[in-house]
Amino acid sequence: MNNVRELMARLGPSTVKFDTGRGGTPDLTNQDIAAALGMVPAGLGRELLEACWWPDGAALRRHRLRDAVIALVTPELRRQQRKLADARTDLGLAEVCMGWTGSVTAEQRAERDRAAHRLGQVKAQCWPISTLESLPTLASAVIGEMSTREGCTKCHGRGTSQTGKGPEVCPSCSGSGLGAISDRRRAAALGRDESTYRERWRGVYEWLLARMLDAEQGAAAHMGRALTGSTEDRQCSPATS
């Protein structure tokens, strides 16, 4: 069966007739493809599947993609803010203890230094303050990469490579089947310079990309199973005159 992503392109406006049978074997019709898409569970994966491969359809429901992306990042943003608040509180408590009795011990200084170090680490791991306002640009850049990214040249897009022990996860693409993209290209998609991207935005971009890829691939697999069932049903149906 063709890649479901390629089949979805048939749902757009076209003057070419794709659903003509060949050699007595029932081909998938556009109605089959649309029906299979309708069987994909609602959520981020389905919205990404449409946004990447059927943009005309996705344009009718942009708010669903917006809501799905916001629902994806909100728990992580809240987790980061809670962790940051805890680290700041720990540092504040350590500083209060230092001045409680007027004399400062080496142990108190060490605890204050440890708390300050932890706070610095947490800050470095947190996304930029402007992440929410930049979310539309981030999501657009990630979707653009997903819809145009070429396959891994090492495994030819399969995500696995053959070894003497059998198929193993491709070390070049880590099993994604996708080719590498430079930081410079991603920075340009965000309208940032490369150094700023690496310092501040790479973490959130790669986090978002990994989860959106996973959601889209899950939706594509679900649609593929639905299409396979549709083809089998048509092949088993008695021929009509």
Rank of each mutant, 00 (worst) to 15 (best):
G224H: 12
P41A: 14
T160K: 15
V16A: 13
G203L: 10
E199D: 13
H156K: 06
G224A: 10
G144K: 05
L91K: 00
E111Q: 12
G159Q: 15
G120P: 10
R225S: 10
L208S: 05
E150C: 12
H156E: 07
R198V: 00
D113A: 15
T153H: 09
W201F: 07
W54E: 06
P75L: 00
V16C: 10
K17R: 08
D32K: 02
R62N: 06
D214K: 14
A9I: 07
C236K: 13
G203A: 10
L77Q: 12
G102L: 04
V40I: 05
V16E: 12
L44Q: 00
V73F: 09
R61F: 15
L119M: 07
S176W: 10
I33W: 05
L11S: 04
M39N: 03
L132Q: 11
S161E: 12
R186Y: 03
P128H: 00
L135G: 00
E150D: 14
D67P: 02
E168A: 07
R22Q: 05
A34E: 02
S241E: 14
V204C: 05
T101I: 02
P55Q: 02
T74Y: 08
D19C: 05
W53I: 01
R112C: 00
E199T: 13
A124E: 13
A106P: 08
K83T: 11
G175E: 06
V122K: 04
G23I: 03
G229I: 03
C52L: 12
I181P: 06
L28R: 00
R82G: 05
M146Y: 15
G191T: 02
L44V: 04
G164L: 07
L72V: 05
